[in-house]
Design a protein around this nucleic acid. Sequence first.
DNA 1: GCAATGATTTACT
DNA 2: GTAAATCATTGCC
Length: 186
Amino acid sequence: VERIAPHLIGMMLSTTINGVTTSGIIREVEAYSFKERGCHAYNKKHTPRTSNMFEEGGCLYVYLIYGIYPMLNLVTGPKDWPEAVLIRSIEPVEGITSQLKRRGKDQFHAKEFSGPGKVAQALGIRTKYNGLLLNKDLIELQIGESVRPLIKGPRIGIDYAGQDALLPWRWADAQSDFVSHRKGLV
DNA sequence: GCAATGATTTACT
DNA sequence: GTAAATCATTGCC
């Protein structure tokens, strides 16, 4: 997952829900693996919530955080190798008006799409989409390669992970304004 | 059954 | 910088 996560930066992610297509370029991600304590499936812990992380890459892992925000993750490993990438920010491309409406905003600002809860809201991601498949059900990822420079640093909000919280597993586009918590990235 | 808590955001001070 | 919002999941009784 630590190899795939940075490669997702620059790729286009889109959803088509009730005929409305919204898309954006991925600008910030974090990697999570069963090998470290920041991951819900640490040590291959299999619970109802984590079960989709054990599926083959291309599966969505969506869960609710703080009772409020869905988090969108892309599962990356082979079966029974629980790893996933959290999509932390996008730069909207298609359906910007729809994305702003879902966010409850009427002014376009980079900060409205920088943060994992904001991304999920803008793309219309709901927890019931947990387990859907990329490029098959509502959500599409266009494979591509970016040549733009990246910056990286520790992940956000996982202090409970001890030393694993220090892993530099958050990546972002160095030239983009669509990045949350730029502090800590080099 | 029940209490604790979180891969966050937002609105305050 | 601090705190509230808000509930599914988890772990323990």
